[in-house]
């Protein structure tokens, strides 16, 4: 038996959502979000446990999870997860250069995490903030119109 991963707190948070939906399966994405927020990844064992709570086969939860690009399964993403937009409005204002610069400074390639677990840099499509191009989302914070210097300062400021 693998060790349980979901805490009671997570399970309760997931169960609390049941009355909102006519099916248990609809709680799949909310449950994945709850686990991702706490663990910064959703390992296979968590998938099995979520499936148990939702009365689904683990493969059903895994099928859904694997469709979306935001739930890592092998290891937690960095303490800061950065989404750098590369879609058209940002590309017109230098997002390709920004992404390259950030990755070089951090010594990783897109999708990678620094060895100290400080930061993961991800490629994003349009973040719905095109008036602030080039922009990126770092955890819960949107960074606007980022210059080279701001990109560097941002990386230096990470804990």
């Amino acid at each position: 038996m693998a060790e349980r991963i979901l805490t009671e707190e997570m399970e309760n948070a997931i169960r609390a959502l049941f009355p909102r939906y006519p099916t248990r399966q609809a709680v799949t994405l909310p449950a994945l979000h709850i686990v991702l927020e706490k663990l910064r990844y959703v390992p296979p064992q968590a998938v099995v446990e979520i499936a148990g709570l939702l009365e689904l086969a683990p493969s059903q939860v895994q099928d859904t999870l694997s469709f979306y690009g935001i739930f890592p399964q092998d290891k937690p993403h960095g303490r800061t997860r950065v989404w750098v937009c590369r879609s058209i409005s940002c590309a017109l204002r230098g997002s390709d250069e920004l992404l390259q610069q950030l990755c070089e400074s951090a010594g990783i390639s897109p999708g990678g995490t620094t060895g100290d677990g400080r930061v993961t840099i991800e490629i994003a499509e349009c973040l719905g903030a095109c008036e602030h191009a080039p922009c990126m989302l770092a955890n819960d914070e949107l960074h606007h119109c980022i210059t080279r210097e701001q990109g560097e300062a941002f990386l230096r400021g990470l804990k």
């Binding site: 409005s89 499509e125 349009c126 719905g128 903030a129 095109c130």
Partner: peptide
């Protein structure tokens, strides 16, 4: 879900 590149009025 507003994700069409260029679009941000819903946000």
């Amino acid at each position: 879900d507003e994700s069409e590149p260029g679009t941000f009025n819903n946000r």
